[in-house]
Simulated assay, not measured.
Amino acid sequence: MLRETPFDQWYEDLHAICGAYDGVPQRGQRAVKGQIGVHGFDHLDVADVWGNVAKIERDRAGIRRDENEYIFFVIEMTGTLAVDHNESQSRLTPGDCLLLDSTKEGVLHMAEDSSRLMSVHLPRQSFLSERRPGVRIGERLDAGNPVNAMLTKHFFRFFNENGAGDRQGNATLLFDMIHLAFSRPEDGLAGIELSNAADRYELALDLIDTHLTADYLSLPWLAAQLGQSERQIQRLFQAQGTSFIDLVRSKRYRFVTEHLNHLPHVHGRISDIAYRAGFQDLSNFNRGFRARFGMSPRDYHRRRHEAPPHMA
């Protein structure tokens, strides 16, 4: 029998684990049949969400409030889940999966007494940048898909339905299996209609995310991919209050901090991470890091992993 949780507590637990995703109660609802839990899979967090709320939604205000960015690998456990995300509408039943992008708006309708999902939090910049492009966001992968079956078998081998289990799963392997399950052959940009500046900007962001660590990523390369002049691309970024260079540097620093946040020990690996992110000059990288975060990369890592002070 499901435990009842006061709605306000359920709402706060959801925020604490998933960030600014807002639970919306059913009319007059004061208690939720279910609860929110969090578990570990290697260095990844896994949210365990039970509830009969009307929906969970992510809007532009929620996106702006969150400092961290994730790709959420969602597995429906019981009940059904209707998802509206990334211009796709999907209905998940037990065993079905999809990916959610925390930088995009979305709505999850879960108004069933037994609705339960699990969500693996994948650091977004690392997930998109280190693996092949063409990942399908917001599109259902049904339980009968052979790749899905292999993926979920790997997941539950280390993490059973009740959230117990070994919890020593290989996060890198899970990353790769999710990419395999949700990737499609890259068709190139032929035939994509770029009818307005918003579409061009969204496509530019996608290209930067999936080619972030490549040596060839540059303004001329991006302009060629979009079939625009460099001046047109510059104006595209200026309209968003940024520039190509500033945006790429920001995403590359996020790539580095995501790795520093999750690696318990670095021991000389910071330079390797910086090179993998696309930085080619370590001196400039270190100066820029200090200017952005007010400390060196090593001090940043130490502060993220230092033990909390002992409470008397």
Rank of each mutant, 00 (worst) to 15 (best):
I233P: 01
Q234K: 08
R235C: 03
L236R: 07
L236T: 10
L236S: 06
F237C: 01
F237W: 11
A239Q: 10
A239F: 00
A239C: 05
A239R: 13
A239Y: 04
G241I: 12
T242L: 02
S243T: 14
I245W: 01
I245F: 08
I245D: 10
D246V: 03
D246T: 05
L247P: 01
L247D: 00
L247M: 06
V248Q: 07
S250W: 06
S250D: 14
K251M: 14
K251E: 10
Y253N: 04
Y253L: 12
Y253W: 07
R254A: 13
F255W: 13
V256I: 14
V256D: 08
T257K: 03
E258K: 04
E258S: 05
H259F: 06
H259A: 11
L260E: 02
L260R: 00
L260V: 07
L260S: 00
L260F: 02
N261D: 14
N261F: 06
N261E: 10
N261R: 14
H262L: 13
V266W: 01
V266T: 13
H267C: 00
H267K: 09
G268T: 00
R269Q: 08
R269H: 00
R269L: 08
I270W: 03
I270C: 04
I270R: 07
I270N: 06
S271Y: 01
D272I: 03
A274V: 00
A274H: 04
Y275D: 03
R276H: 10
A277Q: 02
G278R: 10
G278T: 11
F279K: 11
Q280I: 12
Q280P: 00
D281W: 01
D281K: 10
L282D: 08
L282Q: 13
S283N: 14
N284F: 00
N284Q: 06
N284A: 03
F285L: 07
N286E: 15
R287C: 03
G288A: 12
F289L: 10
F289S: 08
R290K: 15
A291Y: 08
A291K: 13
A291H: 13
A291G: 08
R292T: 12
R292M: 12
F293M: 01
F293N: 04
G294T: 14
S296I: 03
S296M: 06
S296Y: 05
R298H: 11
D299I: 13
D299V: 10
Y300G: 04
H301S: 05
H301Y: 03
H301D: 05
H301W: 09
H301K: 03
R303T: 09
R303I: 06
R304Q: 13
H305C: 08
H305T: 09
H305M: 02
H305P: 05
H305A: 08
E306I: 15
E306R: 15
A307H: 11
A307K: 12
P308S: 13
P308H: 12
P309G: 14
P309S: 14
P309V: 15
P309T: 14
